[in-house]
């Protein structure tokens, strides 16, 4: 493995407690509880989708994918042929496209209560504190994780365990063809977290390899520009790792 790439797990420890069991990287995303992913700018919905499918590892059951009809028209529908390259993309997929937000929230809650569903992913235009609290309670009671993919104007209070803001980044250099896009890269900013509040505001630069299905934290990518067409330059001037065990 490239020495600059650090596995994304086991990275995060609370400050001052070097030996303490810290939170593992996606902070329970797609494993338990409700997590929000928001677009950094309009058009980052595919990056959100990729991050959700790469970080979540459903243990059993199908994925219930709830997409509000307007979202499906704007950002398309998840494609199983493309999702097989992600750990969560191999689970059977049940798609529901409600028109209204109320219907979408109702569908999400029904899905959380079903024993056949291992993960609920929802593209919704927004959800207020009460709605997220309700979903968090349902998720906690039935042990089914929920990932909400939300538009870039998502702000305000939430009862979700974390909110991430995800943006697309220029892809990793392609070893076989310098002119072709390489591995997908995203920048994930942890805006708020209940599990690891000391990490709020932290920036994770992520690199996803769809051959080994591994999500890794890349250091230095965001500090310097990734100049993919000049392979010599980018490699030399990488900034020191921004994220290290403190």
């Amino acid at each position: 493995m490239d020495p600059r790439l650090v596995p994304a797990r086991d990275m995060v420890r609370p400050p001052g407690k070097a030996g303490a069991a810290g939170a593992r990287f996606p902070l329970g995303l797609g494993e338990r509880g409700v997590h929000e992913l928001a677009e950094a700018a309009y058009g980052d919905m595919p990056a959100l989708t990729g991050f959700a499918l790469a970080a979540a590892k459903p243990r059993k059951g199908a994925i219930l994918w709830v997409t509000q009809a307007a979202f499906a028209a704007a950002h398309g529908q998840v494609l199983p042929h493309g999702a097989v390259g992600y750990p969560a993309g191999r689970a059977p997929l049940l798609i529901v496209r409600p028109r209204k937000l109320v219907e979408a929230l109702w569908t999400i809650e029904e899905g959380l209560r079903s024993s056949a569903v291992g993960l609920v992913i929802a593209d919704v235009e927004g959800a207020d504190f009460t709605a997220t609290r309700r979903l968090a309670l349902a998720s906690g009671r039935h042990g089914t994780p929920l990932v909400l993919l939300m538009p870039h104007d998502r702000e305000g209070a939430t009862a979700a365990s974390s909110r991430w803001r995800i943006g697309a980044r220029p892809s990793a250099p392609n070893r076989f063809d310098p002119h072709a896009p390489g591995r997908a890269r995203w920048q994930a900013v942890l805006e708020r977290s209940r599990e690891a509040p000391w990490l709020a505001g932290h920036v994770f630069d992520l690199d996803y390899d769809d051959e080994t299905l591994s999500l890794t934290v890349v250091s230095g990518m965001a500090a310097g520009q990734a100049a993919p067409r000049a392979p010599g330059g980018a490699d030399g001037e990488r900034a020191p790792p921004r994220l290290a065990a403190v």
Partner: peptide, 21 residues
């Protein structure tokens, strides 16, 4: 259990609301 969930969703949102690819 998945069929039961799909039935409930269909009953609320209309026939054929649950889709597969």
């Amino acid at each position: 259990a998945l069929s039961a969930l799909a039935d409930r969703i269909n009953a609320r949102l209309g026939e054929g609301a649950t889709r597969i690819i």
